[in-house]
Amino acid sequence: MKQLLYRDFLLTRRQIAGTCLIFFIVSLGHYPVLIYYFIFALQLPHIMFADENKNKVHYYLLSLPIGKMCLIVTRYLYILIASVCLLLFAWGIAAITSLKPDDIFYMVYGSTIYGWQDICLAFSVVLAAFAISIPFMYGFRGAIIVHVISGVMGLLTIGFIFVSTNLPDTEENWKFNDKVMTWFRELFPLSPVVILLIGLSMYVISIVISVQLVRKNKSLD
């Protein structure tokens, strides 16, 4: 399992480093990083599955002394770890760059945007997107399907961001928290923690679905 996590890190390390750099630059400009987090986190499965499916790497992986289930569970675990790390980095870097003693606006801005509710909600949305898209990537072997699924999930997420975020011309300037939380509360009268639990449950169900797909020889063959 350790080696598979390492393999996934090798596959995504450049993208993760690039994303962190973008988060840092964006934070210096005092723009809310969480919106970019959606875009970049959703690319993680795409990066891993597109290369694997294109080159039929699963054929090779299955000849190695690794169980099929281990291959799937580790992939999910890595995506979870990487997306949490990216989120924490986005949160941390924005908090640090917002804390400018001579700039009260950004202080307020930073602390408002990256509250725990935002983190729960952002992470839940990303988890739900992963939970829906990953079984398709296991269920269909083609590289094109991975691009299509990633494209669709990306469009839906960007759509969600625009629906739920105040646009730049508003006074609050891409403020993420208030509108999305209000929007979500209207849609689901649940607390962010419950939404996070739903996201995690979807993720676990997604693992079970992917494992079942592979058990039935629908993929990884």
């Binding site: 350790k2 080696q3 090798l10 596959l11 080159n55 790497v57 090779y60 002394p65 690794i66």
Partner: peptide, 26 residues
């Protein structure tokens, strides 16, 4: 078991060094 396919089904952006660091400990 050592397995050899008709083609190289490995990560095309990896080098032999990278593949070794992944495969050897298995």
């Amino acid at each position: 078991i050592g397995f050899v396919y008709d083609d190289l089904y490995m990560y095309e952006n990896f080098t032999i060094d990278k593949m070794r660091s992944f495969i050897a400990p298995l």
